[in-house]
Amino acid sequence: MKPEPEKLDDKAFKQELTTLIPHLRAFARSLCRDATLADDLAQDAMLKAWNARESFHAGTNMKAWAFTILRNAFYSEKRRSWRRQPLDPEVAEATLLSSSNPTDSLELLALRNALAKLPVDQKEALILVGAGGMAYEEAAAICGCAVGTIKSRVSRARKAVIEILESNNTGYNSDSGMSASRAFDDIMDQADEIAGAPTI
C-alpha cells in the first residue's frame, strides 16, 4: 500500500463508487424488501455519495462511508416511498415471495421471513455484520452507535431469528435436545407451507 493522496480525483472516485453499487443494492434490499423501492434508495444513495465526494477521504473505507449515506437517507427521509413497508403479514409474505429469487431454497425463504419480523435496528446490525461482512467497528460507525451496542444487537438478532424459526414449528420441544438436522427438517416443513400458499 503506497501512501494515498488526501482526496481521490473524480475519475478514481467514480470508479470506486461504481464497484460499490452491488453492495449498495444488497444493503438497500435488506432495509426495504421491495426490490424496486430498494433500487430507488440505492440510486439515491449513490448520487448523494457522488455529490458528497469532496468530503470523502482517500484511503478510508468507501463502502462503510457509502453505507452510512444510504442508511441516513433511509431513516431521514421518512416521506419517501421506500419507507413504506407492508405491515400486513400476508401482504409482506406475498411481497417476499414475489420479489425473492425464484431459485431460493425453502430454508432461505423461512429465514427471510424471520428477518422481516426483527426490529429494524437488530436486522440492520445482523445484515451488516452477518451478511455484508462489516467489522463490528464499521457497523457501529455506520449506525452511529457504540461497538458494544452493535455486538449486542447482532447477538440478540441471532437469537431472535433462531427462536422465530423454531417457534414456527409446533412439534419442537426445546428440552428434548433435538438435533440441528432435525430442526432443519422442521424449518423446511414450515417453509413448505409458506411456499404452498400464494402464486407469483
Binding site: F27, D104, L108, L111, L115, R158, I162, L165, A180
Partner: peptide, 18 residues
C-alpha cells in the same frame, strides 16, 4: 450450529443481490 447455518444463509441472501 444453527447460528452458523443462519450466518451462511444470510451471506447468501446478501450475495444473491450483490
Amino acid at each position: 450450529r444453527r447460528g452458523a447455518k443462519i450466518g451462511d444463509q444470510l451471506r447468501r441472501i446478501y450475495e444473491d443481490v450483490a
